[in-house]
Amino acid sequence: MKKLLALIISLALFIFLFQLVMETPSKLLSERVSSRYVQKNVLSSGEAEETSANLVTSVVLSYRGLDTLGEVTVLFAAATGVAFFMKNVKERLNFLFSSFIVQTGARVVSPLLVTLGIYIFIHGHLTPGGGFQGGTTIAITTLLLYVAGGLVERKRTVFRTLEGLSGSVYVLIGLMGLAVGGAFLYNFLPLGKIGELFSSGIVPVIYVLIGIKVGSELSNLVLHTTGGDNS
């Protein structure tokens, strides 16, 4: 009975949303808000105001940089909440299947994975990828080392310090932009040419900081989820 009611409600919602989407006219890109983001990058190539080759990075960090700061803050709040709720959970999850092969393999693979993550977030303004993806790769490395038998147990304070430091430097760069150019997160470094590694000013710096912050944040979150002493 209850399932039938749920089915009817979700079907009604589906039909409603379907009609809503059908009635919405599909706009061309030139009529949208983000066409200005694309145009300003490309057409005025002599004095482009923002020179990162990846347009998504340009939206995330340059046009909507303040929103990204808020997003990282939300992630910090979620990690704090997980640490708060898991604080009194004493017993640890133990993995019996971490054999010799798994441990050795994790030790061999993990430096390569961390290098891949750092590569992804250094080249975030040129190729697909960036701080969020690279940070997640680093967090997956932490997960692998944990599954291989607790090789990262004493690194929690390191993660916490890195996370706080990179968040503070993000705000500090924003304040420097306020002092130099008169706007928070103003791009005060030289812009360079599109497609070079050292281009687009503060964008790669902030993406590296976001990569470190997201990586340490999610690593801490995974280690908190596994429980144990949260010293």
């Binding site: 992804i120 990828g129 997956i140 999610l218």
Partner: peptide, 16 residues
């Protein structure tokens, strides 16, 4: 054609 989102989804959704 959203390679950035695809990387994040593959790493987070199926890994973490």
């Amino acid at each position: 054609r959203a390679p950035d989102v695809a990387m994040a989804e593959a790493a987070i959704g199926s890994g973490l």
